[in-house]
Design a protein around this nucleic acid. Structure first.
Lengths: 221, 221
DNA sequence: CCGCATCCGGGGCGATACTG
DNA sequence: CAGTATCGCCCCGGATGCGG
């Protein structure tokens, strides 16, 4: 990208990550930890293949991404964020908070990937009872299963994957599952909107908003 | 800008403010409160006039900026951020923190505007002695004078302008003044690098870093 | 199949000139 | 002062090809 040529933090940051698609690529790498080229293509619907390759080169050159050759059984290249790249999580989190009022409805034609919810889960939700034993909630939207796990310190970890015996399992539309987790709708309302719930209700009650601003933390889920 | 077409907070945010120059325009409006078209042009060296006009239209349409007609003595249009636009300060602050390691040296050809320092001052510095009486520090870089004032709650306010009798006056190169305020260099070192200081040393000592991470808060300034 | 490179059309961007 | 108009260029998007 052409430099702004300004001695200003914002301008310098945008010189590095201001190109189209760049921050979305960082988002994908934040979600998945490490990803193959094809995984990235799948997580970035709409990107042209040459642009992805070019951005990955730029990110590598800027020291935000490293390319690793996976061992023989896989024998493919993996892309991973450096600590410097991971530090962009705060920027992306700030964008996400700002965008919250924009996330009302899914526009027709909008793409959705379940993995995109991994970031909001660990950034904006927390474990309300960190002293209780660890637990896991299995999410089944379309496509790959996601897993939420308590970290023990009040935060949540989220990753693609499955647990053998999760404390609770939620299956349904992404919008409904997230509405339930964020406390915007009750379990009963979610079930009316097609959610399948199995497991402990207590597991669900442990999920709270991090900066509970609007809704009072009381019963009602 | 072309939409990413993804139901994802980051993507939706970038749909609105991901265009080139857009966030820098928001930066200018955050700094100045309200600005004329020409002020923006001056604060955004390198932007094309048609792009500035187009971005201002887009920002107005997105509800981030309002255009006001100034009363007759001025009789010119003023641009101002809406609350929704001001909320982008957190995003810009996150970018600024991430960019801190990139701000080592001023590249040849880089433009500098004193007003760009207003944001780092109020975002990353604080009043270490909020119980003491209010004070003001006058900054004189090139161009327009800047003013730092204590807000009484431990935060600092910063704006373009002059005080009649500031508690301290700092005149010199932007880089030197900011290094001194952030505690990266001592007053003696700053003086060697051309800084002119007048006033109370105590005023200077009241300025501290907000999230003092690396340097222990001790004497040494 | 994976990880690109190449080619091409269209539009966003940059620079300058011009105008009410 | 506050933009609009114009023009060239390069970035981007989409499709296809191609070596490992």
């Amino acid at each position: 990208m052409r430099s702004y040529g300004q001695y200003c933090g914002l301008a310098r940051a945008l010189d590095v990550v201001g190109d189209r698609w760049t921050l979305l690529i960082v988002r994908e790498l934040l979600l998945t930890g490490s990803a193959r080229y094809t995984d990235l293509l799948n997580g970035l619907p709409g990107i042209a293949t040459n642009l992805l390759a070019e951005r990955l080169r730029d990110l590598e050159e800027a020291g935000l991404v490293v390319r690793e050759e996976a061992p023989p059984p896989v024998a493919t290249a993996l892309f991973r964020l450096t600590p410097r790249g991971q530090a962009l999580e705060e920027v992306i989190a700030a964008f996400g908070r700002w965008a919250a009022p924009l996330m009302g409805e899914i526009n027709p034609g909008d793409e959705v990937r379940p993995q995109w919810y991994l970031l909001p889960i660990r950034l904006y939700l927390r474990d309300a009872s960190p002293d209780k034993p660890p637990m896991a909630i299995q999410l089944l939207m379309d496509g790959e299963p996601l897993l939420i796990e308590t970290a023990g310190d009040g935060t949540l970890r989220s990753r693609p994957g499955s647990a053998e015996s999760p404390d609770a399992t939620l299956a349904g539309a992404p919008h409904v599952i997230m509405g339930l987790l964020a406390g915007r709708i009750t379990l009963a309302q979610a079930r009316k909107r097609g959610l399948h719930f199995r497991g402990e209700h207590g597991a669900l009650r442990r999920i709270a908003r991090r900066h509970s601003a609007s809704r009072p933390t009381g019963p009602g889920r």
